[in-house]
Design a protein around this nucleic acid. Structure first.
Lengths: 123, 123
DNA sequence: CTATATGCAAAAAGTTTGCATCTCC
DNA sequence: GGAGATGCAAACTTTTTGCATATAG
């Protein structure tokens, strides 16, 4: 485990979602570490290959990272025109999921629900 | 509707998934159209704002597009160990989706539901 | 004739690579 | 002393913008 990798894990720790590589770098620099952007990318890639973090392409085009196991159920409603998202309450559907999974003999561990449509401003 | 927009729709027509902007451009050039890459991006953005096509960031980092309505509802239950998937019936949740979207003023157009868990063989 | 669309070239933005230096065993 | 990690700068890729020209109404 290199210094850079520890730094990246530190920056990601406690973070709810994905953090852009550049944001990780920015935070580390702001925290006084003289780490280079290159090292952040290299450390993140190594951690990804080691299965410690997840990588995703963010809508902005940047690469994002998060600690493994950070997955949160994400249930959202997104406008296909402007991209506005609304988090939705889903306790009723969570019950439904438990029932459906059980009826096929599955033990549910995680799920994703995304609803696309047009927001009030773009309908 | 401009010439470029028609060309982009043509390139996307019949395509199952997302096509990278650069691929759209390549196809049009290969088909003899002298369209520029810039026009492909501009036409795609206009079509996206008009609600005719969907935009997504591909894992490669490129922007991808597809005709709206190409989406298939996919509601599935996938085993995180062996990858086995089961298609699930979701009429009850579709009703729920209509209600949730309406409560935020949204007009739903598509949705995705994925449930991850372990199948009977791997529980 | 005017407004819009188009294409090229240049600029931005993000990521990766080359290479010299530093660090830690 | 040496293998690997690091940082800078430059290369590369993809997307966006500026601007002059072409086109359509």
């Amino acid at each position: 485990m290199t210094k850079g990798q520890r730094a990246v894990l530190d920056a990601l720790d406690g973070e709810a979602g994905f953090l852009a590589a550049q944001d990780i770098h920015g935070r580390l620099r702001a925290a006084g570490s003289p780490v280079g952007l290159t090292s952040v990318y290299r450390a993140a890639q190594a951690l990804r290959e080691a299965g410690q973090i997840d990588e995703a392409r963010l809508p902005s085009g940047e690469l994002g990272y998060r600690l493994c196991g950070t997955t949160k159920h994400h249930h959202h409603l997104m406008c296909t025109v402007c991209g506005a998202t609304v988090e939705i309450e889903a306790s009723s559907v969570e019950r439904w999921i438990g029932t459906v999974a059980a009826s096929h003999g599955y033990t549910p561990s995680d799920h994703t629900i995304e609803i696309l449509g047009t927001c009030p401003l773009h309908s």
